[in-house]
Structures are given as C-alpha cells and as structure tokens.
C-alpha cells in the first residue's frame, strides 16, 4: 500500500510528466491561456489516461509479450510481438478517445460541452502515449499501472492549471516585445520545473 502511495506521489510531483519529461508540451503551451479551458483539458487528460493505460497494459500482457499467445497454440509460445507496441498503443488511444467522445456526447451533454473540443486533441497529446510507453519500459503490474496513470494525469492537470493561472496574471506585466507569448511561457515553465525539483527525494 505504501509502495503504491509512493508511486502516486512520485508520478504527480517528483517525476511530473510536464516538468521532468516535457510530455504534452504542445497542448500545455497552447491551451494554457485561460484557467477555465486549462481546467477542462486537464480533466479530460486524467480521464483518458486512466482509461487507456490499463487498456494498453492488457494488450501488452495478453497479446504482445513473449509467450502471451501460448494459450492459442503451443507453437506460438516463442512469438514476441512487442515491436508492434507503438502501432497498437496509438490505435488504442485513438480508438478509446473516439469512443469516449461518443459516449460522453450521448449520456452527459453538459460534460461534453465543457470538454468537447479538447477530447479529439488528446489523441496526439504526448503525455498519454508517453505514460503507456513508460508503463511498458518500467514493467509495472496492473495495480501499479492504474496508480501510475492516475498520478500522471493529475500531474498534467496540476501543471497546466498552474501555468494558466500565472499566464492570466502575466497579461498585466511589462515584457519586452520579442519575449512576449511563447518566449516567456517557456521561461516560466522552466522556473516552475525548478520549483518542482525541490520535491525530488520525497518518500514515505
């Protein structure tokens, strides 16, 4: 139990997907001009991440790993399909996002209206695919995968809402013209990353 809590805290703070690995930077910089939209995107990312990473875990364990197909035919026991991981992971994510979009639209139109535009964008958010690939590389088991994906999602949510809040204030400050917009956003992200570095070493 303690081990899982550690993993969660590590995923949210110490190894934050945005500040430590620069994942999801595109949408992180593009959709962080207002707190409200940043909030919506953050929630959508948590949702999709928690859904797709365990899904990819099942695909990896029961389809791709060496020996996973042994149940079908003994001759398949030595087949190792992990090189197909990229294609299957991204297809799962694209498919899952599409399904989620339809389900949300059908059953909770209110949520759809607030998330709607962000859902399709999430397919190409690097942090989603990145979480799945980290899951593969670090060989997490199912429970760890679920906890890790939740932590990564919350980490992204936290980062984007924080940056949006800072950028809203920034509108009233006097910045040299060439540095305005993207330049200053980069530098602020760097400063925030430094602040997050102070979490390193935290363990329960």
């Amino acid at each position: 139990m303690e081990h899982l809590l550690n993993l969660l805290i590590k995923a949210i703070f110490v190894e934050n997907v945005v500040f430590a690995f620069f994942l999801g930077m595109c949408s992180f910089l593009a959709v962080s001009k207002k707190i409200k939209t940043a909030f919506g995107l953050g929630l959508a990312v948590i949702f999709v991440m928690v859904l797709t990473t365990p899904l990819n875990y099942f695909i990896l364990t029961y389809l791709l790993k060496e020996g996973a197909l042994a149940g079908i035919h003994p001759a398949l026991a030595s087949v190792d399909l992990t090189f197909l991981a990229f294609i299957l992971f991204i297809s799962t994510i694209a498919g899952a996002v599409q399904v989620v979009e339809m389900v949300v639209e059908k059953f909770t139109p209110a949520l759809y209206n607030s998330l709607g535009i962000f859902l399709p964008l999430i397919t190409v958010n690097c942090s989603i695919l990145g979480t799945s690939l980290f899951m593969q590389e670090r060989e997490y088991n199912l429970v760890e995968t679920a906890v890790f994906s939740l932590g990564s999602g919350i980490g992204f949510f936290l980062a984007i809402v924080l940056l949006a809040a800072i950028r809203e204030r920034l509108r009233y400050s006097n910045i040299p013209a060439p540095l305005q917009g993207l330049g200053i956003a980069m530098i602020i992200t760097g400063l925030m990353g430094m602040a997050f570095l102070s979490f390193s070493g935290i363990q329960l």
Binding site: F22, L179, I187, G190
Partner: peptide
C-alpha cells in the same frame, strides 16, 4: 536538469524575434 532546456529555448526565441 530539465528546466535548463526550457530556459535556452526561451532565450533562443527572444534572440530570434529580436
């Protein structure tokens, strides 16, 4: 450390746009 990359890109953008 990771933040350095962001600083360098931020400064690069500043230089390029000036």
């Amino acid at each position: 450390l990771p933040p350095a990359a962001l600083f360098i890109i931020g400064l690069y953008i500043w230089a390029q746009r000036s």
